[in-house]
Write a protein that binds this DNA or RNA. Sequence first.
RNA 1: GCCGACGUGGCGGAAUUGGCAGACGCGACAGACUUAGGAUCUGUUGACCGCAAGGUCGUGGAGGUUCGAGUCCUCUCGUCGGCACCA
Length: 840
Amino acid sequence: MKDHYDPSIIEAKWQKKWEEAKLYRRHDSSDKEKWYFLTMLPYPSGDLHAGHWYAMSPSDAGARFKRMRGYNVWFPIGFDAFGLPAENAAIKHGLHPYTWTMANIERMRGQLRKLGTMFDWEHEAISCLPGYYQWTQWFFRKFYDMGLAYRDKAPVDFCPTCNTTLAREQVWGEDRHCERCGTPVIIKNLAQWKFRILNYAEELLDGLDQVQWPERVKTMQRNWIGRSEGVEFTMPVQGHPDLSFRVFTTRPDTTFGMSFAVLAPEHPLVEQIITPAQHEAVHDYVDAAKRKSELARQTDAGEKTGVFTGAYAINPVNQQPVPIWIADYVLMGYGTGAIMAVPAHDERDFAFARKYGLATPIVIVPSEVYAAGDATAWDEEAARTLAEAYSLKEGGVMVNSAAFDGTPWPRSFDATAAWLAEQAAGERKINYRLHNWLISRQRMWGVPIPIIYCPTCGTVPVPYEDLPVLLPEDAEFKPTGESPLKYHEGFRFVKCPQCGGDAEREIDTMDTFLCSSWYQYAYLSPYWKEGETLSADDIPWDAQVAEMWMPVDLYTGGIEHATMHLLYTRFFTKAMRDAGVVDFDEPMLRLFNQGMILGEDGEKMSKSRGNVVNPDDYVSQYGADAVRAFLMFIGPWEQGGPWNPRGIGGVQRFLHRVWTVAVNPPTTPTGATPSDRQIADLRRATHQTILKVTADYEEFKYNTMIAALMGFSNTLTTAKETSVYGSDAWNEAISSLLLMMAPAMPHISEELWQRLHKPFSIHTQPWPQGDPELAKEDVIEIPVQINGKVRDRIQVAAGADKASLETAALASEKIQAWIEGKTVRKVIAVPGRMVNLVVQ
RNA sequence: GCCGACGUGGCGGAAUUGGCAGACGCGACAGACUUAGGAUCUGUUGACCGCAAGGUCGUGGAGGUUCGAGUCCUCUCGUCGGCACCA
């Protein structure tokens, strides 16, 4: 029979068969250990692109591998279906976002099936359906009840292109641009809903020690949370017995070195303390600071400006008056918006002091300098000529600090902190760079925030029984900077659930990151409750099922979510735990970040660059198996890299070779009986490959896994023309090859498995067991070096000990020629590795 | 500026963690089969010297440790990512 590998036929055939056989249905009762394998759910943008393939096919291979390894694997998928592109498409094409989104989902479902994935479609979740988002609202309501949701008016980041506010996490880069569209954000003063993620700051830090996540993601989260430990204390204003301000410092040990204090230009105290003489200068400066965009204020970092207020504060440790300045290098949004300036021990304060001629008294010196005992090293003259701030903590000793002189770090911190606590209303304090999560969005296509504003009762949460607050189907969706829902009177005007009077709904919708913060739970069981009313005691999933499957064992997805989704979903789980709905702390135990697949030009794929790769084209030409294997072969998964259209040909040739070696008989059958040697060689290759491939799958090293399979298939192609063909060892080799290919290339392996008359399905077969004994070489070639340079290679028994290695090396003719007339001073023999002769 | 990752043939990348650098694949070159080849198969392919046997050099650069370094240490250059006046 002359047939050849035709992926277009076999792939469709098996996809249908797998579905009919319900091969990937979840099993809730099983003796096997459960493995919840989750990949980040896609946004239904319309087409599955190369990036989806790069994220999903190796994930799928991982899930299939784990299943063959004997785990009860569950691998669900869904759609993160609220969000801006739907609205933008709606505006452009006059379609309702719902229609656009659902059509895309339908399309992408088909594409995901063509990929050959083992997704369990029975547990799909779609976040824009009322059955889903009623629970997103339920979470909001829970958090409200717990005091975790609040509304305040404050300066917030606003994207003028997306026409909505953003969370701090969604503002990226030096120019503070919108994470989604790249437009620099502007600052607006708006009343917005926020979640108190800061309540969990400490726990979000500690929890990182419990999860197996890439170190760089942990680092990014730690940086983002930005914990800093210090002391906050009170500075009285001289001549104003009723006025004082608080400052935060991480260096209470330097308080004696304070030579001025700085308030942020926005600090409320500024107005009350300016002296008439300074009035105009200060006002000019404050106005300029206000006008200055956030961007300019960032970019100007380094060039410090400020102005004296005319007022003085009292340094509590020595009662010295210090001038109060205002400067925009002090930010109102961090700490107290005011600092004590210690120029000798802080670079920024130093730069400011030198510019404006302020004193730089030295109060910390390195311990060696202190030990030398020469006080001229920290006297007034030394301070005057100081070239740069000495800001190290470790190894510093206090000087010019009265009773504290000689106190080294870190005792200096504790001692001065205690003193400030007693004498200056000070307290140890921990500040975080993390901001509370701003969740209000002025867009239509999102989850309505279930809040009602009543003139009589104030802010009233929508009762659980009234959820969901449905998104009106006929709402205007043009963004204006205010929520489009404002113009939908039927939505906006309601009766107050408490007093029954006229009231208005909150018109903003929620950040879509709320939807994706709990989707791993939504997959668990049907979450929609047709016609049922919700209550505070409900939970969105079956507790028993959650008990069985949560938390997620392995999560795969892109690094871009390091400080957004991955932070939010951890916060959600911790808050849910405190609400009593889950009993663990971390939702995702392990995390793997794949890299990004780039265009042929090595640049990020984008429509404007015209370098977008449409995988469908390649699938129709080469088949899904070839595209999957190619993406895995391209390089380390975590690294990503450019799409190279030529490389896929190599993978395709490999698949054809496998087909030929498995299906076609040898060109010239030998008919002879294989020797023991031939059998052993073949089995060695088989078991070496099994061991290598198994280890590679475990560690997501898919590129070397494919390489090993290629090598093995090359070996088999050669071996086929020898007398081992048709032997037990041969059959073992072929079935092992197919089994090892199955997770990565599910269709061709299933097809060939069937052609070898093996039982359906290859994907439910146990993983082949590698035998280290069979994999062992009996004779190995090792290099013999002279003074570290390879001069010969010798064949030795694999188990040869040092002495026999040495003997064999010295017996080599080439080696003898090299050492003739010289003295062998030392022989280093490493069994199984090499021999090195040190010769003089 | 701070923190982190990375730097290996013409290209993508390997290298059981200190022990044969360049696995596997792409590309290129040569050959076979072909009316044809942008199909398939076979072989060669780090650079330099040499007719050859063989030799020398070689993992961004400079030093160091070691019998032995892509791997460890010090300095340095470059690329990418994160944070950035956070007191």
